[in-house]
Write a protein that binds this DNA or RNA. Sequence first.
RNA 1: CGGGAUGUGGCCCAGUCCGGUUAAGGCACUCGCUUUGGGAGCGAGGGAUCGCAGGUUCGAAUCCUGCCAUCCCGACCA
Length: 486
Amino acid sequence: MAKITKQSEDFSKWYTDTILNADLADYGPVKGTMVVKPYGFSLWSNVKKALNTMIEDSGHENAYFPLFIPKSFFEKEAKHVEGFAKECAVVTHSKLIAENDGLSVDPDSKLEEEIIVRPTSETIIWSMFKKWITSYRDLPVMINQWANVVRWEMRTRLFLRTSEFLWQEGHTAHATKEEAMEETLKIVEIYKSLFEDHLAIPTLIGKKSDSEKFAGAEETFSIETMMQDKKALQAGTSHYLGTNFGNAFDVTFQSKDNKEQPVYATSWGVSTRVIGALIMVHGDDKGLKIPPKVAPQQVIIVPINPKNEDEKEFNSFINQVANALNQKNIRCKVDSSDNTPGFKFNFWELRGAPIRVEIGLQEYKDQKLTVCRRDTGEKTSIEHNDIDGIQDILDDIQNSMYSSAASFLKENTIELDSYKDLQEKLSEDNYFIKAYWDGSEDSEMKVKEDTKATIRCILEDIDDTKAKCIVSGGPAKHLVIFAKAY
RNA sequence: CGGGAUGUGGCCCAGUCCGGUUAAGGCACUCGCUUUGGGAGCGAGGGAUCGCAGGUUCGAAUCCUGCCAUCCCGACCA
């Protein structure tokens, strides 16, 4: 276990060091791929469990659609093709031939129609919806799937952008525009709750500008979050797709009064990128800081073995504490490896365990526990059977992690109305800049060229003739956030 | 696909310019003893066809040619 680079020295090196050293993930053999290791997967599973519960509780059903999609499906929706054409893995052959010194592709096995490895599943899902939807009685259809997708990326980073990643993608079909829009916004609220209540990550919610929205969507809503380097990370998206996919796949339904009607759609997704967000929002120079609700281990007990004491009784005291915690559904583990206590302290801080309980001779004699919080480093002593006391500390850690991230976001979000100030500020440091925008692509592009910042989201539409665009000085249509993004 | 760099035990790397015994060191690993309240110490041990393929040479990690891979910087992106 090596020492990790300080955040202040090189934030992105800190990020990679932390992931590798905390055992979350490792590089895969193919460029841009990653292996999610057990500790990282356990974290993802906790996130997944929380989100899946909310998805199911709001009426969605899980299903699974194939990885392989006929190429022709992508040709059906023009914008969608445009958006994904440049990053698709394509299957062209079905056989290999063993030759003297290796394998080669059998030219005779060329497929009649090439197959695309899904970059997202709208097309295959809507091809199925066509079969399933004929009457108003069939609607709404509310499907979710947990899957892997492949997007052939040029530059990749662990969790943030890899060629293959895990996510959930929701796909719904509705009888009316209003219902589909309502669904789109309901999902945004679910995502907001996942981030704020479970991951302790404050969020900004808004609409994407045309240049940033999902290929094939009418409207894209996004959950934007601020990392500790003050760059923005889009952590979730929810799309109102209108009738684009319904039309492309010729899906219609018959209403009560026997009229043929178009079907309205939504789609929405959250990926393993949230792990990246969690790392970059909460981590520090010691490593990860995981919010208790999703931590693989909430409490780590580090025994400090006494020299000449009765080891048996000491160990049974420790097991008694661990069992009591586990019985109250607190995820707890005793680190009984033969490393030194100091090593274990650092090891579990690196891995972000919210609470460490130290039990040595002193605690054994006093029947007390020394409790150390990962977020503040503060040590307190509590009675050995005060399980509620531990739960209270976990809750407090969860809350204070959220509030410190929230004040960080607030401190680094500034409102500006002069373009000169915007350029100056963004050349000094990263910020979220709240400003008016006239809605034109020219203004949007100018900011990107001058500062590398983009419109992360549209917070609200403006109907005030006095509001001026920060770029052009013309009448403003929207209040937006400009920021550099991952 | 353009510009730059790098390939040597599991990992980080010295050695390459100027060819010459058994390829050095650190981390990690294994065994033993001593340790254990903030990354333990000592001793012993295992592990490398030096990215691949040719070539030059008495002799190649080192020189030459070709290839491959990875990383960084640009055009694309949840």
